[in-house]
Structures are given as structure tokens and as C-alpha cells.
Design a protein around this nucleic acid. Structure first.
Length: 432
RNA sequence: GGGGAGAUACCAGAGUGGUCAAAUGGGGCAGACUGUAAAUCUGUUGGCGAAGCCUUCGGAGGUUCGAAUCCUCCUCCCCCCA
């Protein structure tokens, strides 16, 4: 199966420029996607682009990851991203390194192979670019009329928009177009991929290449649909914020839980996008899923595949064990029987806090326990509200407003498992 | 430079001297139902306490017994004209 067919059945193609299929058949092609180095870790919002590159490389082509050191400090006018701050060079460097590290789980950066992946940073060529040089080299070739026709710009200029647009944001497409031009010239990179919101920016790039280098210079665009949720919410966000690939930022347990909680509808599209499972297997899974959605087989496979891919088999198994205990038929009794190392392993991913043994032996009113001693609730008023609603459990047993935390609540003489609602767990460790 | 319209809680948005910790909607959180779903229904959504009190309506002053609301200055944002 070739690259386009592969993406096609996975539902990962939103739009592409004509002639791309032929181009990919004719020669090994180089393509890039851009990633903003705003943090030292990727989050799952980046995953689609990365998977596109993965498939691209698997199909024998050469992927480039462009770190948007320069573009990342501008932000495009689509409005979802605010104009950003300049990152200092050192931070940029560090972020780039950690990101590359994460990417090597997906992409083969071995330069000895003809299609070994490459990482570049547009800051490297943009930082020296003088303004005058830029408007002469680049600005000359693209008319303002052309730039204003882009949706992202049009919306911001329309009467309904309450926000004006700075010149900086307006120029964004030129800066991104320049990237494409540079990569085209330096690395023979003929394709830019990205989310469908990037279509306009990518096309400015192909246009710039054509106008500047002539009709023989042919560059292509391919976009994938933006990942959505059936309920209209934002993909990849939780209460705590982003789902990161870095286990220090999002524990493998939380990571696993995130995918496991995918809705029935979303799971069908996600399994195609985020796993490398083959078509036959996925078709089978989806069919079973439709027959018996309550088994949540699809969600389980989805969570398994991605957790193993990002973390490891071991981490995955621990996450399953933990989920089993927390959400299975686990009772206070099974909890009490857990050995200390098992308990600690399982709860590695849940938020922890420490309380001194003195306080425990003196007994702590539950309201204070929830607010002052742990961060389970942010105020006493809220704590009472939770308790009144029956949202709080200690060691799997629901407690009320008058409950006192004491030594009897300690598991293994050291631990307390607190729970807010069904899904939020906290481990409290008693210090001696 | 001129004219106009604004800035209210997480967001949108009402409120134009006391009854306002501030309508309504969305979002969030929780409960019931369930499959750790979806939909639905219910509760809740500034802080501390038992009543009550304390801090909030862009910022700083002022008028008043009393201000989100009136006045002055400042900051920011949008639209139109030059």
C-alpha cells in the first residue's frame, strides 16, 4: 500500500494538491511538518503530524521535522494561538533536543539511510534574515491581495471580528512560506504536510516556490483533518491540561486512562489515526465494537497500542493493573491486602501528598484533610460541597462531612487512598 | 489627529445608586442512570465561618449614609473618518 492509500483509508487526508500521487510514485520524496518548540515535550496534539511522517518514512520517503523556533514566536492569525513570546536560544535548544528524543521513537534519524529523518530549525535561517532583505526576497513575490484572501486573515479583518490583526500575524504566512522555500532549495523538500488549518499557509509556500523559482519548481501540499471530538470538545485537553508524551509531565497511568476514556464514536477514528495496526485488524475491531460497545474493546486496544508505543510494555501493564484495582471490583479489603511495592507501583501515576504521622494520630477533620493537608479541594466550601454530594471516598468507602481521618485509615500503616468522584484518585503518604 | 463604541466572574453576556457575590447561556466539577461511555435529569461553580463577615465588576482618585452603576484622570481594545 502506498503512502496516499495508507492515509486515505485511515481518514487522514483532508486535502492535497494535484499531482502529488504521481510525484510520490516517481521518486523518493522529502516532506516536512512544522512543530512549535513551546515546551520541552510533545503532547498528543502533535501526534497526528508525527504519524503522518511515520507512515511517510515507512513508505520509503524522507521525513523532515521542522522546529518552528522562528514561527513559534509569532503565532498565525487563526486566533487559536496568541502572539507568543520569544524563547531564548538556550531554551529553544533544550526543547529541540528533548523533542528530537521523543521523535526517535517514531522516526529513524539514521543519516546513513537515504530516507533517514532530519530535524531542522527555522530559527537558524530566520535569525539572520534582515527585514529589508526579507521584503525584497520574499514579500515582492506575494501580493497583499493574495494574502488577504486567506481564510485566517479574512476572518480577522471581517466586521464580526472583535480583534484586530497585527502586521506580525499578517506576515506569518510569508515566514512559513519562506521555510518551505528554504527546505525546497536546501533539501529538495517538495511536500509540506499539516492540519487542515494549515492549508492556506502551506499553499502560500508552494505559490512562493513557483513564483520565485519558476514553473519547473513544483511543490505540494497535503493536509489531514483536524482531530475533533464527537461532543465538540477540544481534543487532547483534560482538566489538568495537555496530555504530554513525557512521563514526568503526564504519567503513563494518566496517559493510558486518557485513551481508555475515548468515546465510542471517537475511538473508531482514533484507532486508525494513532495506531499502526493494519486495516484487516482494525476493521475487525470496529465491527466487534459496533456489536458490543459496552465491552470497550476498541478503547482498550487503542489505549494499549498508544501507551506501548509512547512508553513501554511494562508501563502499559502497570497502568492496566492500576486501572483494574481502581475501577474494577476492588474493595477496601483487596486494597488492604495489597503489598506495599505493588501499591506504590500502581499509584505511581496518581497525585501524591504527604502528611505527618503526628497529625494522623491526632485525627484530622475530613474538610481540613481535603483542603489543607492535600490538594483534593481548593477551598473548604468546595470540600463540603464534595462531601455533601457523596463525591469523596477514603480507601474506597464513601465518607461524610463529619468524618475524621485517623490511624485506622492507614493502609500498610502508611498510605491513604482518597478519591474524588469516580475517576480522581490521590495517594496520601504518612511521614514518620 | 477627529468621531463613535467598549473593558463585568473560566468564556460569552445582562445589570446603569441600595433588594448585587452580581441575571442568563456555555463550559467546569459532582450526584443519579450506565460501560471508568453518550444522552438525560439533579446539585454546584469568589474566600472564611453556624447566622454572619471579608475581598471582587480594566487601574487610580472623587461624590454619596451607600457605587459594578455617577464624576475626574489614566491604561488597554475595537470600528469609522483623515
Amino acid at each position: 500500500m502506498n503512502f496516499i492509500e495508507e492515509l486515505q483509508w485511515r481518514g487522514m487526508i483532508h486535502d492535497m494538491t494535484p499531482g502529488l500521487t504521481e510525484q510520490l510514485e516517481n521518486e523518493m520524496t522529502t516532506a516536512y511538518v512544522g512543530i512549535d518548540p513551546t515546551a520541552d515535550s510533545l503532547h498528543i496534539g502533535h501526534l497526528v503530524s508525527v504519524m503522518m511522517l511515520k507512515h511517510f518514512q515507512v513508505c520509503g520517503h524522507r521525513p523532515i521535522v521542522l522546529i518552528g523556533g522562528a514561527t513559534g514566536m509569532i503565532g498565525d492569525p487563526s486566533g487559536k494561538s496568541k502572539e507568543r513570546n520569544l524563547l531564548d536560544e538556550q531554551t529553544l535548544q533544550q526543547n529541540q533536543e528533548s523533542i528530537k528524543n521523543q521523535l526517535s521513537k517514531f522516526l529513524d534519524f539514521n543519516q546513513n539511510k537515504p530516507n533517514g529523518a532530519l530535524m531542522v530549525n527555522n530559527y537558524d535561517w530566520m535569525k539572520e534574515y534582515s527585514f529589508l532583505q526579507f521584503i525584497r526576497d520574499i514579500g515582492k513575490h506575494i501580493t497583499v491581495n493574495y494574502m488577504m484572501a486567506k481564510d485566517s486573515v479574512k476572518t480577522r479583518l471581517s466586521a464580526e471580528s472583535k480583534e484586530g490583526m497585527s502586521f506580525t500575524e499578517f506576515s506569518y504566512q510569508l515566514v512559513q512560506g519562506t521555510d518551505f522555500l528554504v527546505l525546497f532549495q536546501q533539501h529538495n523538500c517538495k511536500l509540506q504536510m499539516g492540519g487542515s488549518d494549515q492549508w492556506g499557509n502551506i499553499i502560500t509556500g508552494t505559490e512562493l516556490i513557483r513564483r520565485k523559482l519558476g514553473h519547473d519548481a513544483k511543490a505540494f501540499a497535503l493536509t489531514c483533518p483536524l482531530i475533533t471530538k464527537a461532543d465538540g470538545g477540544k481534543f487532547g485537553k483534560t482538566e489538568e491540561g495537555n496530555i504530554w508524551l513525557d512521563p514526568a509531565k503526564t504519567s503513563p497511568y494518566s496517559f493510558y486512562q486518557f485513551w481508555l476514556n475515548t468515546s465510542d464514536e471517537d475511538a473508531i477514528s482514533y484507532i486508525k489515526i494513532f495506531t499502526l495496526l493494519q486495516k484487516e485488524e482494525i476493521d475487525q475491531l470496529i465491527e466487534n465494537h459496533r456489536k458490543a460497545p459496552h465491552q470497550r474493546e476498541l478503547q482498550k486496544v487503542l489505549a494499549r497500542e498508544i501507551t506501548i508505543m509512547i512508553h513501554s510494555k511494562e508501563e502499559y501493564e502497570l497502568a492496566v493493573d492500576a486501572s483494574e484495582i481502581l475501577f474494577g471490583k476492588g474493595t477496601t479489603d483487596t486494597l488492604k491486602r495489597l503489598k506495599e511495592d505493588v501499591l506504590l507501583n500502581i499509584f505511581e501515576g496518581v497525585p501524591q501528598s504527604n502528611v505527618s504521622s503526628n497529625d494522623i494520630y491526632k485525627s484530622i477533620p475530613i474538610v481540613d484533610f481535603l483542603t489543607d493537608f492535600t490538594k483534593i479541594s481548593s477551598s473548604k466550601r468546595e470540600a463540603r460541597e464534595f462531601l455533601r454530594n457523596g463525591a469523596i471516598s477514603i480507601n474506597k468507602e464513601r465518607v461524610g462531612e463529619d468524618y475524621m481521618i485517623g490511624e485506622n485509615d492507614l493502609l500498610q500503616n502508611r498510605y491513604i487512598l482518597a478519591q474524588r468522584g469516580k475517576k480522581n484518585y490521590y495517594l496520601i503518604i504518612c511521614d514518620y
